[in-house]
């Protein structure tokens, strides 16, 4: 017989009452598992202070990193997807869009803006992976196309930050044609001699990697990003062989000659500024 007996079985303290530190004060790196202060992580451009792991961030964070004083004019803020095919899988496409919009607070998988980088005007488009895997449908295609037009009209450089699984299946033929549409407008930008930097982040695959993401005058990437046309699972199943280590990593793609350089996110703003200044 023990000295103390429990009156009730099991633990009854709700989890939230047991926390010692307030939520979000500490950040644990998913790569090296080391812990750092959230503020420190953020001040390092959302990279790990120990192993330099680049966290997957979205347009909000990139715009804050890039634009002076986080000031920018967002373009085409109200554009949203339609459902031209009446597509439905486990959920209808409009329901999926509505649910994702509610969850993420975003309208679709890309945001575009006009602002200043160290005083220099640029147009930037940034994809959000949290919105249906950063997939490209009509809205993404149209917003990228209009961002290109904006750069053309104002004769200012264009930056596109890609993070996408590829085309959006629910828009089938329409999403395929966004590859064509964006490439068409980039052909015009190319002709006009206005610089275009494509920053590929983790991951950039499929239709996005086979259109605008690979059409930069400068194709650059964040370290360790997965970049490729076909997904690794598809390749493995097709060829029936294991894939080499670091296959489709940014370093691998650089090695094979398809990137100009890899940029640490902490240096992104200044490096972009230097690059664009050299072209003026």
């Amino acid at each position: 017989m023990s000295w103390f007996t429990r009156k009730e079985k099991n633990i009854h303290t709700p989890t939230e009452l047991k926390r010692e530190a307030p939520d979000g004060l500490w950040y644990k790196c998913p790569e090296c598992k080391k812990v750092m202060h959230t503020r420190e992580h953020k001040s390092h451009a959302h990279t790990c202070i120990h192993c330099n792991h680049h966290e997957k961030i979205g347009s909000e964070e990139y715009f804050e990193l890039l634009f002076d004083n986080n000031e920018f004019t967002e373009l085409d803020t109200t554009m949203t997807s339609q459902d031209p095919l009446g597509f439905s899988d486990t959920k209808s496409y409009p329901d999926r869009i509505a649910a994702t919009q509610k969850k993420t607070g975003l309208r679709d998988a890309v945001r575009t803006a006009h602002g200043k980088v160290n005083g220099m005007e640029i147009v930037a488009a940034c994809m959000d992976f949290s919105f249906i895997g950063g997939s490209m449908g009509s809205v993404v295609g149209e917003k990228i196309a209009r961002a290109v037009d904006h750069a053309l009209r104002n004769r200012i450089p264009l930056l596109v930050i890609s993070r996408s699984g590829g085309a959006r299946m629910m828009e089938a033929g329409f999403s395929l044609m966004q590859m064509a549409k964006t490439s068409a407008r980039l052909a015009l930008l190319d002709q006009a001699g206005i610089p275009f930097v494509s920053l590929l982040t983790d991951p950039t695959t499929g239709g996005v990697s086979a259109s605008y993401a690979m059409l930069g005058d400068f194709n650059i990437a964040e370290p360790g990003s997965m970049i490729g046309f076909a997904g690794p699972r598809v390749i493995r199943e097709t060829i029936g062989k294991d894939l080499p280590k670091d296959f489709q990593s940014a370093e691998f793609v650089l090695d094979h000659g398809f990137l100009d350089f890899i940029v640490d996110r902490k240096d992104l703003k200044n490096k972009l500024f230097t690059l664009f200044s050299m072209l003026q």
């Binding site: 490439s183 259109s211 390749i235 398809f258």
Partner: peptide, 26 residues
């Protein structure tokens, strides 16, 4: 489909297709 293979990725399948799209317009 375009071939999903190791060499295809090494030689830039995405870039090859992207370039064709842009160039064909002109």
């Amino acid at each position: 489909g375009a071939f999903p293979g190791i060499e295809a990725e090494e030689r830039g399948q995405g870039e090859a297709i992207a370039r064709n799209l842009r160039e064909m317009f002109m």
